[in-house]
Structures are given as C-alpha cells and as structure tokens.
Design a protein around this nucleic acid. Structure first.
Lengths: 122, 122
DNA sequence: CAGGATCCTCTTTGATACTG
DNA sequence: CAGTATCAAAGAGGATCCTG
C-alpha cells in the first residue's frame, strides 16, 4: 500500500495557503517566538530568555524564517553597541487570533487525555 | 551566549498547556489530518488519499498519536472485511476553531511575503 | 549584544516488503 | 482494506567556538 490514486473523496480540499501557513507556523519554537513577540518588540536575548531552552542557532534561524515570511520585522538601532529588536509585522500581529485559539483549546482540554499535568499557569 | 538569566521581561508566560498543544498539533501532517477529519469520519485510505503525499507509516503513526492525545477516535466495524473509521472526538472537534483561525490568517495573507504563490483554492 | 560557522548526534521521513 | 516491520537517507537540533 503506497500508490497514490487521484483520491476517492471529493477534494475541494487542497489548500496551499493553509499548508503553507502550517509549515511556517508549525516548526519547533515558532509558536513560542510569536507568543513572545505578542507582548511587544523584543531583543534577541530577551526572546531567548523568554523561551528558555532554545539555542542561539535555532532562534536565529527561526527569526530569519519569520522575517522572510513577513511575520517579523527586524529593527536595527545604530547605537553603540548596536541594538536590535524584533517586532511582529501587521501580518504577524494577526496571528494573535491563532495563538488565542490554540490557547483556548489547550486550556479547555488541559490534561484531558494526557498525564495529570502540572497546575502551571496558562 | 547561552546563560539563562531570570529574564528581563516579565514571565507570566510559561505555559505548559500551550506548549503541549503546539507539540501535539505541530507535527508534520497532523494539521492536514485534522482538517481531513473535520469533514466527518474517514477510513485510513481516504485520509491518505486526501492528503496525498503522506506515507502509510506516517499516517498510521500520526493517527496513533492523535488517539493517545484524545483527539481522534478509532471505530472498528466487525464486517468482512473489517472496516475502520477515524473520527474526531469532542476534543478534536473543538480544534475547528484553531483550524479556522489558521485558515483565515492564511487566506488574508496569502502570497504576501512569499513567492507570488499559486492561485490555488482555499 | 547578536549572531555566523562547524561539527556531530538523534529523529523523522520515505521506500519497500509483508501480514491478517 | 488497514496496517506493521525494516532500513537507509535526510533533516532538525544542540553544543561549542568565533566575530564585529
């Protein structure tokens, strides 16, 4: 079993936009980065601290991806030493709805099906 | 650079629920599987056809993960040959909000920042 | 501070083949 | 039909060292 037939069920489904979005947002750390930036512009180290366990390499990589996707903007302040801040673009800000939807779902179903779960804040 | 300071920004942020949800939903193919099942119960092959490029091994793996997470239920009909259908649980059905949020975002920002993009349906 | 460059390891994925 | 088993290749992730 592996052949790809044209499919039996109606395919009013193929949605490159959705798949694209999922691919952009679904990578590891990305949702956390978005969440970190919803609070306003942040510096590299702040985001890193916020997330905690991410490596510099990955954070750098994700930020670049998000920049390319037009979700995040990078602001460079020519001070000394240079200060750099990341902020959500208009496109990025609208992700708040997605983040909230996930949050609501997570809150509602916390521990329902998984381990007893930690009382952790939401 | 790697030290973990208590962080400068306020951390009313640590949210295991959100992270958990993201981890469950963020794996490759999962969002597509959810989407496939929002249309009702589907058989293994139907989901496979719907998604198109997923391998049996992966689909099987994802379905089991989703079952464990309480998002999907497996129905076995003791016919001959046996028929098996997958359907979203109550918990899974509530993911519609998440899917829609992503969908709205994707539609609004299609191709804004990425390649010209295909005209593909949403 | 804000990363870039490397190296190396652990997963994930995708073919393929086989089963009840 | 509905998977499971196996395996090799690809990719993601982490740690470390190094700049401007």
């Amino acid at each position: 079993m592996a052949a790809k037939k044209p499919s039996t069920i109606d395919l009013a489904h193929f949605c490159p936009k959705y798949e694209n979005a999922v691919q952009t947002l679904g990578k590891r750390w990305t949702p956390l980065i978005i969440r970190a930036l919803l609070g306003g512009s942040r510096r590299f180290t702040e985001i890193s601290d916020y997330i905690g366990a991410i490596s510099d390499r990955l954070l750098s990589e994700r930020l670049k991806e998000l920049e390319r996707a037009g979700v995040v903007e990078k602001r460079v302040f020519p001070e000394t030493p240079v200060r750099i801040e990341y902020v959500l673009s208009a496109k990025g800000l609208e992700l708040q709805g997605v983040v909230e939807a996930i949050q609501r779902w997570a809150d509602r179903w916390a521990a329902a099906g998984e381990a007893a779960a930690t009382p952790g804040r939401s």
